[in-house]
Design a protein around this nucleic acid. Structure first.
Length: 203
DNA sequence: TGCAAACCATAAC
DNA sequence: GTTATGGTTTGCA
């Protein structure tokens, strides 16, 4: 029960802008319930509120708490193509088990690399479309880097925030890697590919 | 290239 | 329970 969101805990919502982009986070007791970003405060906030579970009380705060401040800073870091500092606990416990597996796998895609819907499904079971569906309803963008998941032919696939944004995010994550590599995901291996594989066939 | 069929966890009825 | 829905993939003309 320690991980569940449901209960008597108020969900706290915070927003903050950084270099012209607004970021938002909803959290409960140092756990992230949802995160998002948008061109203005209204969008960022709207995204967040739309993801909150119905019938759960929440409150929007003007000044970020210490924890929220850290999370918001990290969201901004990811957005602008930098490494995330520290890891945050996501409120996954109430989500379907397979959804949890997909999200936990996705967070492990390293900066500078992408993987495919099919690669993820091969690594953890299930099918590519199911993975795509879960990405489409990712409540933790961009901290769960669903923008690093693309189609098997290295075209973009989709993105909740719009494909333009997906390209921008990936464009900032170029690190000059040349070869695919395999990363260990609890007992299974996930193949990841340099983000350049995607960027080069956009022109 | 383009199209059709197989695929698979979820959400919605 | 059952059906509908994709941010897919693969095979084949």
């Amino acid at each position: 029960m320690a991980n569940t969101v449901k209960g008597n805990w108020m969900i706290e919502v915070y927003t903050r802008s950084s270099d012209g982009v607004w970021f938002g986070v909803a959290c409960v007791r140092q756990q992230i319930v949802a995160s998002s970003f948008g061109a203005n405060q209204q969008r960022a906030l709207g995204n967040i509120l739309g993801m909150l579970p119905l019938n759960e009380p929440f409150q929007v705060f003007h000044e970020p708490s210490g924890f929220a401040k850290t999370v918001l800073a990290s969201l901004s870091n990811v957005y602008f193509g930098e490494e995330v500092r520290g890891d945050f606990s996501l409120a996954l416990a109430d989500l379907p088990v397979y959804t949890q597996r997909v999200l936990k796998t996705t967070v492990q895609i390293p900066l500078g690399y992408v993987t495919t819907y099919g690669s993820i499904s091969k690594a953890i079971g299930g099918g590519p479309r199911a993975v795509g569906n879960i990405m489409a309803s990712n409540h933790f963008a961009p901290i769960v880097p669903c923008h690093r998941v693309v189609k098997s032919n290295f075209t973009l696939g989709g993105y909740g925030g719009g494909l333009k944004v997906k390209v921008e995010l990936l464009g900032r994550e170029k690190r000059g890697f040349l070869e695919p590599k395999k990363i260990e995901i609890n007992r299974h291996q996930l193949t990841v590919f340099p983000v350049e594989f995607v960027l080069k066939n956009l022109a």
